[in-house]
Design a protein around this nucleic acid. Structure first.
Length: 489
RNA sequence: CGGGGUGUAGCGCAGCCUGGUAGCGCGCUACGUUCGGGACGUAGAGGUCGUGGGUUCGAAUCCCGCCACCCCGACCA
């Protein structure tokens, strides 16, 4: 069998790039740093969107849409926000083109300069809070719980498909509340939603925690995150939820009359996950033969391949398979019967493995005689011959088992690659291998120094941190608990 | 944005050093044989050699600019 993609051990990032191309998920576009998400990849994203959107609705949010363009003056209203994003903004300066006089093509019409430049949104806090000002007068208008699905642009220096592209798709929730407590509750609630989505749908275990002040979102009082481990031991920030305090309310003058008839600024949150989740999904589970998808997000959960010599044989097989396909669909299983004559069975097997289809059935002459079918699972690369009867129930159970098995595998991997370290020497050798739990003195200086020396950052101060007296792995100063260090994407 | 590398058919590559008819494998088309792990034979189709200049009788090949991608840094979801 021809090797379709490089192995993870040979070259991890080449494996990642080739896998994305060969599995038909996405490709680079003609535009620097921007990707084309292909139909197969996009259908995974749609499944993610659907599940997340349902969870947002269940927690009381509604969707809305705000403009792509942000007046330049809005961005500068919140001081630390503009500082965080200024270096990576695309700016619209003109609104018209014209034919060049030398006939060389079209040029920007210098006559058509905008009075005020427009920023292509890198995130929408500013345009949304400027709108909320008009929507909120009273505590009766609160809480305001809104989400939008959108694209944003951040002019990154170095891009990687799905993980960091100049344009990416995401959702951003923006909420306003009457009290700090309520906003903090919302911040935590949405982080929990993200964690549940990552673990139950993506089968990716995550660590929930808070960012250090250094790593906080520009304009936030507190940033919560979920962190996942990839198969090279590096961390990927999979979602963030920010408590904005009254920062944006003050910057955009969003005040309300509370029940005591006093004027006060509202409390805000924002939270988001992006197409970066696609990168997490790929890197968490896939192997050297291709993609491994959790059944809950797989566009095709079951593929059925007939094996035949003659037209008659194919007809006999199809006569058995087609009712099964109907039955599976009725049971909510997405299934593809690949009876195309274009490729041979062996080719199809390899192709669907590359695309990460969780379950494959094969039926040939032998099975016709015996009333059996061959059933193979992608995650373990195992196969067995089973009776044709009762297949629907068997497949439903198998899909659940695969979902759980790949979650358990990813979790076991993370545990095997998480180390408790107490000396800086240990820290420096073990940081190659995964996550480190180490004491930290709580200062930005130490955090920076460790980053400088090891390229590792504090991924989060975990919520489930055990109170434990200790000394900082770097400075030797006192610490009250261990934080998670790792190299990150 | 700094350092290194790559760009030739849909994909993977050779040719470039030493300028002179653009090649190989896979894929594609047709027909036949095949079909339980990426089949085989025969006959075909497919190229502004990334792009713009320059040198030359002549440029994929030599020189300069630009663009894109990959790897390593700094920055970041």
């Amino acid at each position: 069998m021809a090797k379709a993609i490089p192995s993870r051990s040979e070259n991890y990032s080449e494996w990642y790039n080739e896998l994305i191309k060969k599995a038909d998920l996405a490709e680079n576009s003609a535009v620097r740093g921007c990707m084309v998400i292909k139909p197969y990849g996009y259908s995974i994203w749609e499944k993610m969107q659907r599940a997340l959107d349902d969870m947002f609705k269940e927690t009381g949010h509604t969707n809305a849409y705000f403009p792509l363009f942000i007046p330049k003056s809005y961005l500068s209203k919140e001081a630390s926000h503009v500082e965080g994003f200024a270096k990576e903004c695309a700016v619209v300066t003109h609104y018209r083109l014209k034919n060049a006089e030398d006939g060389s093509g079209v040029i920007v019409d210098p006559e058509a300069k905008l009075e005020e430049e427009l920023i292509v949104r890198p995130t929408s806090e500013t345009v949304i809070w400027s709108t909320y000002k008009n929507w909120i007068q009273s505590y009766r208008d609160l809480p305001l719980l809104i989400n939008q699905w959108a694209n944003v642009v951040r002019w990154e220096m170095r891009t990687r498909i799905f993980l960091r592209t100049a344009e990416f798709l995401w959702q951003e929730g923006h909420t306003a509340h009457a009290t700090a407590d309520e906003a903090q509750g919302e911040t935590r609630q949405m982080l929990d939603v993200y964690a549940r989505f990552a673990e139950e749908w993506m089968a990716v275990p995550v660590i929930k925690g808070a960012k250090t002040p250094n790593e906080r979102f520009a304009g936030a009082e507190d940033t919560l995150c979920i962190e996942a481990m990839m198969q090279d031991g590096k961390a990927l920030q999979a979602g963030t939820s920010h408590f904005l305090g009254q920062n944006f309310a003050k910057a955009f003058d969003v005040q309300f009359l509370n029940k005591q008839n006093q004027l006060d600024y509202v409390w805000g949150t924002s939270w988001g996950v992006s197409t970066r989740l696609m990168g997490a999904l790929i890197m968490a589970h896939s192997d050297d033969d291709g993609l491994v998808l959790p059944p809950k997000l797989a566009p095709i959960q079951v593929v059925i391949v007939p094996i035949y010599r003659t037209e008659e044989q194919l007809e006999q097989i199809s006569a058995k398979i087609k009712p099964l396909v109907q039955e599976l669909r009725k049971a909510g299983v997405s299934v593809k019967y690949d009876d195309s004559d274009a490729n041979k069975p062996g080719w199809k097997f390899a192709e669907y493995e590359l695309r990460g289809v969780p379950v494959r059935l094969a039926m040939g002459g032998r099975d016709l005689e015996n009333g059996t079918v061959e059933i193979a699972r992608r995650d373990l690369k195992s196969k067995e011959t089973v009776p044709f009867e009762g297949l629907t129930e068997r497949i439903k159970a198998l899909l659940e088992d695969i979902q759980q098995t790949i979650y358990n595998k990813a979790k076991a991997f993370r545990e095997e690659h998480t180390f408790t370290v107490d000396t800086f020497e240990e820290f420096q050798t073990q940081i190659e291998n995964g996550f480190l739990l180490a004491h930290w003195d709580g200062t930005s200086e130490t955090e920076e120094a460790i980053k400088e020396a090891t390229k590792a950052t504090i991924r989060c101060i975990p919520f489930d941190q055990q109170p434990e007296e200790g000394v900082c792995v770097y400075s030797g100063k006192p610490s009250k608990g261990r934080v998670v260090f790792a190299r990150a994407y």
